[in-house]
Design a protein around this nucleic acid. Structure first.
Lengths: 191, 191
DNA sequence: CCCATTAGATACGCATCCGTAGCTTATGAG
DNA sequence: CTCATAAGCTACGGATGCGTATCTAATGGG
């Protein structure tokens, strides 16, 4: 028998991968201990020894999958840095962890405990992400009117990336991201 | 026995309401004939006589729930008409049918047959919606540069409404809709 | 090398949903 | 009033997930 038995960290990482893959493929509504165990090629008992529910296990896995890379203004050019920040977003969106996060977000009403746990354990400890980070930097250095940074304008980039991703069933290309910055974001910033 | 027995249209409408309510409450992944029958207070056999799967039934119900009101430019003022169009959107978003549509959209990868049926039977027969209708009208009447109507700019309003709805777990208020128009949409249109 | 730990396997009774069958009975058209 | 239609009810065997119990055997620390 080829009975290489996994233990500790190695096993847990495999289970974490399995639960994310299950969410991606089956969805939150079909997330079961049986399914996770099958995919991780382990026994249900192993899961129940550590986690009481599939959701606990999922939150654990998402905690591990974070943090995500944060954009650092590097080009000394707002347009370039905004495109870079949104590209970080599109890169992240195709990961299993992101798919799980988006599933939780869109089913927040249905599974509020999940959403709360995700925000409390993973998101809240972090500040604004993606374009906000860039915009704040340029505003702080006097190269952008701070009055233009509103709850609306700081969301334009992310909002359009998500909208295009939904409408076209794929993440926006670099050209589309550039168009978002040129046609929507920069005009709203008064540039 | 109070055995008022429903038949025909009345019964079907009740079932349509039930399937939408089930999707809202239980989600696509938990949509079952048993659940629908329970909620509609009828027997599974009644459902199986007409529909082979919960998804067929759901598509049928969504077909009935449409069409949605289309914005008609009425104020002779772009800003006012845009706010009116986006308010139509926020009003629609709180209906059960909209919740179901958004669920299908966000789980498109998981249930492609559902998404295809929804597009083919319900959406494709209709043109652009909400802000696009308004923007096209003003552009056609020479009151807006047609070159500004791109696949990006025509989505700004809807994109931000969705983004705010997701972030705040509620549809945007009238004030927030106005801010979307003033701070993002109009600037992108060169106004 | 010994042995406590724990992964892994199997089985259990319970519950829910599946899709179908067979029946009773309210309903409305004629 | 009669009667074809269809709503409503109950029950079925099969499948799957639940959470738990009870083993076994691989693993690595001492």
């Amino acid at each position: 028998m080829a009975t290489e038995r996994r233990r500790g960290e190695v096993l847990i990482r495999a289970i974490h991968e399995a639960v994310l893959a299950e969410v991606v493929e089956a969805g939150l509504g079909q997330l079961t201990m049986e399914g996770i165990a099958r995919r991780a090629a382990t026994a249900k008992t192993v899961l129940y020894r550590r986690w009481a529910t599939p959701f606990e296990l999922l939150i654990d896995a998402l905690g591990e999958a974070y943090p995500v890379e944060v954009p650092t203004p590097a080009a000394d050019d707002l347009r370039t840095d905004l495109i870079a920040a949104l590209t970080l977003l599109t890169d992240w969106m195709v990961t299993p962890a992101a798919t799980a996060v988006m599933a939780i977000t869109s089913e927040r009403e249905r599974y509020p405990e999940l959403a709360e746990a995700l925000w409390g354990k993973v998101f809240d400890p972090r500040g604004g992400t993606f374009t906000t980070t860039v915009l704040r930097w340029y505003a702080a250095h006097g190269r952008l009117d701070p009055a233009r940074l509103t709850p609306i304008t700081t969301q334009i980039g992310e909002a359009l990336v998500f909208k295009l991703a939904i409408d076209n069933a794929r993440t926006p290309s670099v050209e589309e991201v550039a168009a978002i910055v040129d046609e929507a974001l920069l005009p709203a910033l008064g540039l």
